[in-house]
Design a protein around this nucleic acid. Sequence first.
DNA 1: GTGGATTCGAGAGCGGTGCTCTCGTTTCCT
DNA 2: AGGAAACGAGAGCACCGCTCTCGAATCCAC
Lengths: 231, 231
Amino acid sequence: MAGTPRQRARERTMAEIVRIGRQHLATDGAAALSLRAVARDLGVVSSAVYRYVRSRDELLTLLVVDGYDELGEAVESAVAAVETDDYEARQAAIGRAVRSWARAEPATYALLFGSPVPGYEAPAERTMGPGTRVIRALIAVWEEAYAAGRLTPPRVELSSPTLLAAFAAARQELGSELPDDVLVAGVFGWAALFGCVSFEVFGQYGRDGLGDPDALFEHHLDLLARAVGLT
Amino acid sequence: MAGTPRQRARERTMAEIVRIGRQHLATDGAAALSLRAVARDLGVVSSAVYRYVRSRDELLTLLVVDGYDELGEAVESAVAAVETDDYEARQAAIGRAVRSWARAEPATYALLFGSPVPGYEAPAERTMGPGTRVIRALIAVWEEAYAAGRLTPPRVELSSPTLLAAFAAARQELGSELPDDVLVAGVFGWAALFGCVSFEVFGQYGRDGLGDPDALFEHHLDLLARAVGLT
DNA sequence: GTGGATTCGAGAGCGGTGCTCTCGTTTCCT
DNA sequence: AGGAAACGAGAGCACCGCTCTCGAATCCAC
């Protein structure tokens, strides 16, 4: 009800463009995303969508933010549904949420975590917030597990001053107190989780996905918990 | 010197097309790979390249095979340069080779391990062989380490019959004797390694790459060895 | 050697793309 | 009520993948 009819129409059109864009992303992939096709589905001539979206890259950014938000939503609600003090189960819930969202939206997942689109760089100021919700959820789990004495990662000797500085900066930015070896193992677990999901979604396991992708992923969640030191 | 002048000219042109294709891949990315641009660089009209390459997808396949071979070459020569009985060092050498090749050829790496190109499916009969050289190199290391009693992965209880069947098939195809829990941990380590490399190459760590990507990766190699059970 | 078959590059053409510009029309705000 | 802003339509530019035709170059068998 806010604003003039023209403003409301603009919002509706804007949402419609994102909706159609996501649909095309799902059916045809990011590389085939075409403003002209969006315009056709919108029932409008191609140049008209440029009133709403500055360029194809701008539409990509909208879809990136949309995707990060949806993934973040899925992860956060999944982790909230688990017993607070079962840290391994909470981490596993995050992993399962990432995987099932990725399988449900492979094209958007590929847009976020696959090959960067050449010539396109997501503007950090618009994607930083929603783009860090998964790692924030993981860190929240590790934070509590560590405080409860249930997180004992492998001991590593960090010697690189620049890496230590980056960890210190990350600690400050995230309001965390986690020690360096937890962070090293955590970053590894983070990358490993997405490595497992990407291998499956991107088809590296071959056409049959090693027979039983669900079972394989459950075992990998188990290994993941041990790798980061969750007991 | 083999064959007629026409045949030799054809081979030269073919190699030139792949060379130019790789160059364009490196500078503009897979999505921007254009047969017309290749034709321009080749000094020929666009339709002429269709005498050599059936379609854009065909060129992609050539580049995929080329990339897998180059990566396989790098990995195999890296692992051969390490003491045979230092299994952790051999695995680390594989990891470093993958990472440094990926950093040197990010576009080709993205073509192989990033988002699948929509509408394009690599023909298995042409990519299976070169595409499995990295995992074969890893399995060779694990094989010897296991025989030497230096590989003790976390124990996992596999219950899925289809997963067990897939592992049995993989064992037979690779001529391996590794038990199931080694394979589960191995697949995890394989995916985790490429997860770490992809996160770095695809820019998930942010613009500064957590300060010191080299040091971070070395720590991750350490964690990787522990995750698969290399002692 | 020469003639028929094959291969080759050039060129035109089709429908698609992103994006720009102009031009009436509609809507808004003062 | 009228000037300003926003809007959709349409034409146009340069690019893309891909197909077809046509004349020239090359090969191969006789």
